[in-house]
């Protein structure tokens, strides 16, 4: 259970979202309030629950659903940066500039 304190900055880093300081301060008040509300489910006895009936596996044939490259151009045209038939990204591993 939460002890009323939530490190919103750490959550924002985990979720890869930049949050401005004033919003961080507001969320530090709001989120614990929401947690106090959702924590009310702790009182429900769930010892006798079982898996819902009627569940089934959903499979598809292990084969190519379409010709290779059929959608490449359409999908790549949506990318912010591209190089030929690839999506371009910033270097993933980089050395800190001095």
């Amino acid at each position: 259970m939460s002890d009323g304190k939530v490190d919103i900055g750490a959550l924002a880093r985990l979720a890869r979202i930049e949050v401005a300081p004033e919003e961080l301060a507001r969320l530090e008040k709001e989120i614990p309030g929401i947690l106090r509300f959702i924590e009310t489910i702790q009182s429900v006895d769930t010892s006798s629950t079982s898996m819902p009936k009627g569940l089934r596996n959903v499979m598809r044939a292990d084969e190519a659903p379409h010709e290779s490259g059929a959608h490449t151009e359409k999908l790549l045209s949506a990318a912010p940066m591209r190089e030929g038939d690839r999506i371009a990204v910033k270097q993933v591993i980089s050395r800190k500039k001095k």
């Binding site: 979720a15 979202i17 949050v19 989120i31 929401i34």
Partner: peptide, 9 residues
């Protein structure tokens, strides 16, 4: 943003 953070928690 609020729901993503709540969900992350």
């Amino acid at each position: 943003r609020r729901r993503i953070l709540l969900g992350t928690f």
